[in-house]
Design a protein around this nucleic acid. Structure first.
Length: 288
DNA sequence: ATGCAGGCGCGCA
DNA sequence: TGCGCGCCTGCA
């Protein structure tokens, strides 16, 4: 573990608040100086932005520049993506303008699976709290700036926890789901590496659905946030709300079926449905 | 207090 | 296949 520092000039699509608070991640916290510190890939990194200069400071076994390029997906041209989305309709143009600094992070598959199983019927502060507790109890300590941080536990590390142990971390009824999913992965019944090699989005989704605690919404979040499947479209209460308000206008949003939303998203947003979802979701949650 | 939060799994038609 | 229902827990 060595401390490293790099500065990068980024003139487009990189706003800390937009990235870390658009709902895709749970392990980034804001500091007093408005920078953010997060734990990912067995590393701890602090990100600070001044004008166009972004400073990354952190501890990692890997080369920090490579780590950052991969995790923040710096090679992807968001200017182009935002242009294409804006052309689809005026709602997207507004949403993209609002969430101008969003980037979809390239997160660890295993961590994303567990995190979004925890997210079911839950709220963000508690999701973050549970993930912190799990990391503290089963992950490895990392020292950064004289403070203790904890890596997200590996499948083996989390596999040491019994259902009762998990319940004590505040997981509630999700304890057995986490236990079963962890076991499936440790037993080799479910192969994470093999999943990464699959091409067909629908096949990936159907595979993920075999995991306990993974339904359609969670599966689509995993595909979008950990497998770069920008065509996947997670539908939760907020997405349903914003889609009904903007495109369907039923008097009661409950009348809008998931099927209907899926069809609309596929036809109109095509291979960028997930990206569109993220801008719309963030816009709706933050603006109103 | 009671309801609710970024769903899921189950049982039943 | 498509519904309705209950669910740990913490917080307002």
């Amino acid at each position: 573990m060595k401390e490293q520092l790099i500065k990068i000039n980024i003139d487009n699509s990189f706003e800390l608040k937009d990235i870390f608070e658009c709902g895709q991640c749970f392990r980034w916290d804001i500091e007093e100086d408005k920078s953010y510190t997060g734990v990912f890939n067995n590393s701890v990194v602090n990100v600070k932005k001044d004008g166009k200069t972004v400073t990354f400071k952190g501890v990692s076994d890997r080369d920090l520049k490579e780590l950052i390029e991969d995790y923040f997906d710096l090679k992807t041209d968001y200017k182009k993506i935002k242009n294409e989305l804006s052309k689809i309709d005026s709602n997207l143009a507004n949403a993209v303008e609002f969430g101008d600094g969003i980037r979809i992070l390239n997160q660890d598959l295993w961590e994303t699976i567990i995190s979004f199983i925890i997210s079911a019927n839950n709220n963000i502060p508690r999701i973050k709290k549970i993930i912190n507790t799990l990391s503290k109890q089963y992950g490895k300590e990392i020292i950064f700036n004289n403070k203790k941080y904890y890596s997200f536990p590996t499948p083996k590390e989390l596999g040491k926890a019994s259902v009762e142990d998990l319940r004590k971390t505040g997981l509630g009824f999700r304890d057995i789901r986490i236990f079963n999913t962890t076991k499936m992965i440790n037993d080799g019944v479910f192969n994470l590496e093999k999943l990464k090699t699959l091409n067909d989005t629908k096949e990936i989704e159907n595979t993920l659905l075999k995991l306990d605690g993974v339904g359609p919404k969670v599966a689509n979040c995993i595909m979008l946030f950990a497998l770069k499947r920008y065509d996947s479209f997670p539908i939760d209460v907020w997405v349903r709300r914003v889609m009904n308000d903007l495109y369907f206008k039923y008097d009661d949003e409950e009348k809008l079926s998931k099927k209907e939303i899926e069809k609309f998203a596929k036809e109109n947003f095509k291979d960028k449905a997930g990206l569109a979802q993220q801008y719309l979701f963030y816009w709706r949650r933050e603006e109103k």
